[in-house]
Amino acid sequence: MKDLIVTTYVAYLPVAILLTFAVARIFFKNSKIFVLDIFSGREDIANSTNRLFETGFYLLSLGYALFRMKINKFDFIRTDYQVINGVREQVKQLTYGHQELFEVLSSKVGMLAVVLGVMVFFLMFMLFRGKKKSAEGRAKRDELARLQQI
C-alpha cells in the first residue's frame, strides 16, 4: 500500500519540476523584451532584473509544488456499515488503489498548473504596468528637458 504512495510522489516530482522549468523558460525568454523597454534599453540591468524575477518564480512555484506534495491518507477513509453480532456498526476502512492515487495525482498536477497560470498572468500584468509607468516617466523627463531648454 505504501509503495503506491511513493510511486505517486516519484511520478509527481518530475512532472512538477519539468512544468515549472518549461513555463519559466518560455516566460522569461519572452519577457526580456519588455524588461529592456522598461529600463529604456539598458541591457545589463534589464538582464539582472529578469534573472531576479526568474529566481523568484522558481522559488515560488517549486516551493508551492513541494509544499502541496503530501498526500493525506485520511482522504481515502471510507465509512461502511456492517452488522456485527446483530448490531449495526460503523466501520472505517482505509482503501486506496491505483485509481484513487491517479485521481489525486491528476488533481495535484492540475492545481499546480492553475497556480502557475495565475502567476504568469500576474507577471504579465506587472510587465504591462511597468511598461506604461516607464513610458510615463520618460514622457515627463522629456517634458522637463524641453521646459528647461526654453
Partner: peptide
C-alpha cells in the same frame, strides 16, 4: 517547500 516559499 516551506523554505522555498519563505525565500520567495
Amino acid at each position: 517547500g516551506r523554505i522555498a516559499l519563505i525565500l520567495s
